[in-house]
Computed example of a mutant assay.
Amino acid sequence: MKIALLTDGIYPYIIGGMQKHSYCLAKYLAKNQVEVELYHCVPNGLKLIDNLEGFSEDELKFINHKCLVFPSLGSLPGHYLKESWKYSEMIYQEIKPKLEQFDFIYAKGFTAWKLLDEKNKGLKMPPIGVNFHGFEMFQKPPSFKSRLEQLLLKKPVVWNCKNSDYVFSYGGKVSEIIKQKVGIPSEKIIEIPAGIEKKWLTAEVNEAGEKIKFVFVGRYERRKGIEEINQAILEIAGKKDFEFHFIGSIPASKKLRPKNIVYHGAIKDAEKLKQLIVTFDVLVCPSHSEGMPNVILEGMASGLAVIATDVGAVSALVDAENGWLINSGNKKELSVAMSEALTSSKSAINNRKKSSLIKIKERYLWDKIASLTIFELKKIKKPLIV
């Protein structure tokens, strides 16, 4: 089997959930001896990538890649869509002479936009599946500015999905969005969760101590729910001794002063991050919109209980066995969940921590995700291209 993987950047060169997913997808398909033609990019001004890092010699035998420069067309409203269309044109020019080689084209975001346009005009090509990950533009926005940004994206996202052969979903509410808000029938949806690599698995769960340690991991964005976290911390302060740790770049204006609040800043070293996360008890992820967050997968693989909002495909990861699932934007529910964690017995917290680790081992390792992806793609019949 040979697939073309189109993405707007790849880890470790570009940091982001989509880029990390693209890296793991390419890596684990190659591990299974699937040929991958990878089309990716770097921002304007950065050097093109010649040799891919993070892959073994055996994996690289099955990966051929083409790195492009993502267009930069200013900062006026709509610039991202114009840049995405231009980037899809660049990919189209590169891939057009090779179309007959592929069994499937796996496209992240808008990367297949031009291909789909040509397909509509009659150009024969392999089946195309698009993945917009969390479809956040159809989720509840945290601000008026976010609502306007969503409005710009919705129509082209719908067009790309409706003109593709398949649409990938992480499951949970993401599948509901694709069917109900994007208008894609169930038979066109391929439901495959995100995954995590085995190296993230902790050998054993670090049992909770006398003081519960909460942690938030991520950069500051309004949709990540840091304002709600701050309000919840202030509400439960003094009720019971606890610590709350923030990992990521948080603006000074959003930082609290109490001594039990610790700001670690951004930690880019993955090994250092892993060693730190396992020392905590409860991951807090109150996002207004998400897909299937890497941070929750990493927290669960590290043996943490989870408090998270029921957005995207989060409900596939978090339930009453390993944490607390709450409504987005609801600071009262967040305060209640944190209070319940504080008043729970050590054994109850430890059972939730252990359940997180078990769930990851059973369902969300990349070896299993890759096998499921290959199984689904093999069911798709490739049309004859002449």
Rank of each mutant, 00 (worst) to 15 (best):
K2D: 08
L5T: 04
T7C: 08
P12M: 11
L25K: 07
K27Q: 10
Y28N: 07
P43I: 03
N44K: 14
L46I: 09
N51Q: 15
N51D: 11
N51W: 09
D58V: 03
F62K: 11
L68A: 04
L68H: 04
F70L: 01
S72H: 12
L73W: 06
G74V: 03
G74A: 06
L76G: 14
E83K: 03
W85D: 08
S88R: 01
E89F: 05
Y92Q: 08
Q93W: 07
E100G: 08
Q101D: 12
F104I: 11
Y106A: 03
A107D: 06
F110K: 00
D117I: 02
P126S: 10
G134E: 08
E136W: 06
M137Y: 09
Q139S: 01
P142R: 02
S143M: 05
S143D: 13
F144H: 09
R147L: 14
E149G: 14
E149K: 12
K154R: 15
K154E: 02
P156I: 01
V158C: 08
N160D: 15
S164E: 02
S164Q: 01
D165G: 08
D165L: 03
Y166A: 03
Y170M: 14
Y170D: 11
G172H: 00
G172I: 01
E176F: 13
E176T: 11
I178W: 01
I184T: 08
P185H: 05
K188N: 07
I192M: 02
A194P: 04
I196D: 02
E197V: 05
E204W: 06
E207Y: 12
I212N: 07
K213H: 13
F216P: 00
V217E: 08
R219G: 15
E221D: 14
E227D: 15
L234H: 10
G238Y: 11
K239S: 14
D241M: 10
I247Q: 05
I247N: 01
G248P: 03
G248M: 11
K255D: 09
L256M: 08
R257P: 06
R257N: 15
P258F: 07
K259M: 06
N260C: 11
N260E: 08
G265R: 10
K268W: 12
A270H: 14
K272E: 14
K274S: 08
K274A: 06
K274H: 00
Q275C: 12
T279P: 01
T279N: 13
H288K: 01
E290C: 00
G291D: 01
A305C: 05
A308Q: 00
D310N: 15
D310F: 07
A313S: 04
V318D: 02
D319W: 04
A320T: 06
E321K: 14
S328A: 13
K331W: 09
K332H: 14
L334C: 05
L334T: 10
A337C: 10
A337L: 04
L342Q: 07
L342H: 12
L342G: 00
K346G: 13
S347A: 12
N350H: 03
S356H: 07
S356M: 07
S356N: 12
I360K: 00
K361P: 00
E362F: 00
Y364H: 11
L365H: 02
D367I: 03
I369Y: 02
I369K: 01
A370N: 02
A370K: 05
L372G: 00
F375D: 15
F375K: 15
E376L: 11
E376A: 13
K379G: 13
K381A: 08
K382D: 01
P383M: 14
